[in-house]
Design a protein around this nucleic acid. Structure first.
Lengths: 224, 224
DNA sequence: CAGTGTGAATATCTTCACAGCC
DNA sequence: GGCTGTGAAGATATTCACACTG
């Protein structure tokens, strides 16, 4: 692996390539060119080649990429060719939804602990997982080998949840609350904002209508 | 509104500013500087000023931004100062989760129709919404004034769901399935990939461990 | 040849630095 | 005085173009 800095956008695209490649595989494709993959993903072919080049040379010149191999190579490069155990803190609406949405497990992210500090929630069972007091987080992380924490608490509890998770030894956090977290430099936080997609669509429609009203020259913009 | 092209990243950040500003408001702040807002959001202060400048001059020199006004100005600029009605197609695990997660409504995105083509699901009620046959989508979109479609079908049904939505007159689509959609130029599609956050965190942890093992010089990388 | 891998060119986004205003 | 708004500079990411190889 070349150790230049890898753009975040590249990681995002690689995740997409895996999804698309898995569809292609299911449909029986053995080999795919950057050209075809690019068209399917609405990106530029050299973009794909560049993205892959960060991690190695996976293609065969004059032929393309072997689909199954490429899936594995990308997953291996990203470190998602194994199971990652996760703990979820905050069993509200969203937390429950994530616990029930067991596609995560299927894709290698297994939520093995659900935590909340509300005594009324403790003991409840969701998708076969018992909700446990947040105070027991530290032990659970150690016992179960949890490496990633998911924060689905209300915004005002998010920092506290983060502190608990970090103290327990988790190395990465996915924060579904709108709180911005303060964490040590060696903890990686990924912020998830469900709403920004809604905002983008709403904005885009609004913009379109404005332009229509102005009868301006329409400039069909690509999705990225 | 200046009508240069507005970066997608700007929209994403504006959505974040709104969230953070709403927290500040709740905590009693009346006024905020780009400096403070920037620190809270882990971005550069001029970034914030640039992002806002696309839409107007909302600040007061020497003072900062009035929190409540700024929230409203951003929302108005993005077109999210009103209710957008949405239809959801595909009432599986994920679809149900979104239907139950009624924060969307609170933030101005009201899911008023749930559709599925599975006869066993039709008639089921989720969060007070009856699941209806996808064939009745077109009428519902007209009757209820639906403008945005959410696709939560399995990957192989996503394109069909998109076709239904577009035919019904929806202008924007949020696609939660991993399918890449083919749509007319005037339909805006936003792709949501839950997994890429997991992939990013996993990759980041993996990378950290590699670097540790190499005992290399650590370069604490900023989160963006 | 057809299609990858990659340096060089271009386009885009971010940050700096400071003029302008309250 | 302090903080916004913005052109210019710098950094980053994307695309082109072509050498290279199975």
């Amino acid at each position: 692996m070349k150790s230049e800095h890898i753009p975040k956008a590249t990681i995002k695209r690689l995740a997409m390539y895996v999804q698309v490649l898995e569809t292609l595989k299911r449909e029986g494709s053995q080999v795919v060119s950057s050209e075809l993959l690019a068209r399917t993903c609405s990106v530029n072919p050299s973009q794909i080649r560049k993205d892959l080049a960060y991690f190695g040379e996976f293609g065969v010149r004059g032929v393309g990429y072997h689909v199954q191999d490429l899936i594995y190579s990308i997953k291996h490069s990203l470190g998602v060719d194994r199971v990652w155990k996760c703990a979820l803190v905050g069993v509200g609406n969203l937390g429950k939804a994530l616990l029930r949405h067991q596609d995560f497990k299927f894709r290698g992210f297994d939520i093995v602990g659900a935590f909340d500090c509300d005594p009324f929630k403790i003991g409840e069972e969701i998708s076969g997982l018992e909700v446990v007091c947040t105070r027991r987080l530290k032990d659970a992380v150690k016992e179960l080998g949890i490496e990633i924490g998911l924060i689905t608490t209300p915004v005002n509890r998010a920092q506290r949840a983060a502190n608990f998770l970090i103290e327990a030894g988790v190395k990465g956090i996915i924060n579904y609350s709108p709180a911005m977290l303060t964490v040590p430099a060696d903890i990686y936080v990924e912020y998830v904002d469900f709403f920004h997609h809604f905002y983008s669509v709403a904005f885009s429609i609004t913009l379109d209508r404005h332009q229509e009203r102005l009868g301006s020259n329409d400039e069909a913009d690509e999705d990225d």
